[in-house]
């Protein structure tokens, strides 16, 4: 079997847990499970992430050129329901998503309520490259002092994310996945500063 539903999902979850509790930390999940072949409409790391998080109790939405195909593909493996942006627990933003749509996601995604802040969306963003370069500085719980991060195309959503986090504890949590299956997480508590360009 290409993916071990017990142990592979456990490993992916622990990667998420480590990265979510240490924002900016990068961990790789490339070695976890083997791609299942030509039926895969998204990169393998997105697929194992979906398998780890989604089931029939969750609702999700995909944004991107091939959204319909990917939605059908992920839903058939997880029994998770495809819903509108506003109702989704998990939102996948694929690399080919239009800039305007990315902004829309942060505006429309569930932020939770003050009594139930956990009823908010987790956004998984596919990006070209993640690194600890000095484009951005991260601050907040999970970070000892500050943490450097470089996220390709982050300029399309950083301002919108900040807007969505305005009223902590309301907000959205982000899991970033790059082409090399690197993972970085940005929970709602993380404050992102753009580094000044000299």
């Amino acid at each position: 079997m290409a993916i071990d539903l017990v142990h592979d999902t456990q490993e992916v979850f622990r990667t998420f847990l480590h990265c979510m509790s240490r924002p900016g930390t990068i961990k790789n999940i490339e070695e976890i499970g083997r791609p299942i072949g030509q039926h895969e409409y998204c990169q393998h790391s997105i697929f194992v992430s979906a398998i780890t998080l989604l089931d029939a109790e969750t609702r999700f939405h995909v944004v991107g050129e091939q959204a319909d195909l990917i939605e059908e593909f992920l839903s058939s493996f997880t029994y998770s329901k495809v819903v509108d942006l506003q109702a989704a627990d998990y939102i996948f933003i694929m690399k080919d998503a239009k800039k305007q749509m990315i902004k829309e996601v942060f505006k429309e995604a569930k932020k939770g309520t003050l009594t139930n802040p956990q009823q908010s969306a987790t956004i998984l963003i596919e990006t070209d490259r993640l690194s600890n370069g000095n484009q951005l500085t991260l601050e907040g719980p999970g970070i000892a002092h500050t943490q450097n991060a470089e996220i390709v195309d982050s300029e399309f959503w950083i301002a919108e994310r900040a807007e969505a986090m305005k009223e902590y504890p309301l907000g959205v949590d982000i899991i970033l996945i790059d082409r090399k299956s690197n993972i970085m997480c940005l929970p709602r508590t993380t404050i992102i500063h753009k580094r000044e360009v000299y």
Binding site: T9, Q10, L17, S21, Q118, S120, G142, P169, D173
Partner: peptide, 30 residues
């Protein structure tokens, strides 16, 4: 018995709650 006793569905639900708990420090996630 299944690995770690629990069925995978139960684990998934608890894992999702843990991730939310980490994202909102100190908040009790049901």
């Amino acid at each position: 018995t299944h690995f770690a006793l629990f069925d995978e569905g139960s684990k998934k639900e608890i894992r999702r709650a843990i991730l939310k708990g980490v994202a909102i420090p100190g908040y009790q996630v049901p």
